[in-house]
Nucleic acid binder design. Structure first.
Lengths: 159, 159
DNA sequence: CATAAAATTTAAGCATACCTAAATTTATTA
DNA sequence: TAATAAATTTAGGTATGCTTAAATTTTATG
């Protein structure tokens, strides 16, 4: 019942998932743009995903996810969200966070992913001690700002 | 001056770095075992790394790092340590943490890596407020234990 | 010191995933 | 609707990195 997917296949699945959410179906061109490859590469991958029963693909027709494909893509997408939130919490600049969330979402052990999401959960919904946790965030943030100031003055001195 | 390295090449470099630290040089066999591939694959990679001036490699001879190779490997290794510490902090079981630290250490943006290491630094050396932070760790830990209990009783109910 | 065992290397091949260029199909518009 | 433009697909290649099996070299031992 479980499907083996390479990290790259997951990227394509999530891309299709997101495009589909916006406009109901995905064209080869959209997918290629979203994943950052040439259309011919997207076609190749569609054949693979189709043979695994994850997408509905017919030559020259729009691409949609099968039920199984959508299920998997949703899981990948939620993982992606977790990592994005996490990177924001540790103060990674938005643009970089968006890029790196992609990288984090592959290959990690389910237990590791679980712990990442607990961390996010703990920090954002701080079970009992909301004040305590938000105080923690404040402290961490100013610690980072302090470090950034040090970095900048070092750079200045070096020039 | 900068060298382009695939994630896999980094794995090999760090392996050589660690083996070398233990016994002064690395044999093809050691490297293959550490990286988890067949010896012939290690030979192939040694030729690549050698052509980039990162390792000293002669047929049938032990492998050592060049100065440049050692410099890069040290950076990779320290990144690895950061991620390992981080995974421990978020309560990932040791064995899994060791495996996943490998995965984390590649491809991430330097700024992201910096923020990971600041997080670790902040948690372990808590600049001003040692008590505050260690209290945070305690809270997070018991939050995870609580969640684990919930998981287990759910599993139990399902059987 | 010859030979057997162990280590290493070479050779041939496979899978993934990418690309460019050319061919084909579909869509648009004059 | 015929011609052109745009999108898609196919064909042929490339690079990485892995494998097994056979050949070679080095090391260890009777």
């Amino acid at each position: 019942m479980d499907v083996e997917l390479t990290g790259r296949a997951e990227d394509y699945l999530r891309a299709i998932y997101e495009i589909t959410a916006r406009k109901g179906y995905a064209r080869i061109r959209d997918i290629a743009r979203e994943v950052g490859v040439q259309p011919s590469s997207a076609v190749e991958m569609m054949r693979k995903l189709s043979s695994k029963g994850l997408v509905n693909y017919e030559k020259y027709g729009g691409v949609t996810l099968t039920e199984k494909g959508a299920e998997i893509a949703a899981a990948i997408s939620s993982r992606h969200e977790t990592f994005l939130k996490f990177l924001r919490i540790i103060q990674v600049p938005e643009e970089i966070a968006r890029r790196d969330a992609h990288i984090l979402e592959h290959q990690l052990d389910p237990k590791t992913i679980l712990q990442f999401s607990r961390f996010v959960e703990f920090i954002t919904n701080a079970p009992d001690r909301p004040k305590f946790i938000s105080r923690w965030m404040e402290l961490f943030k100013s610690y980072c700002e302090e470090e950034d100031r040090k970095l900048k003055s070092n750079n200045f001195r070096r020039r």
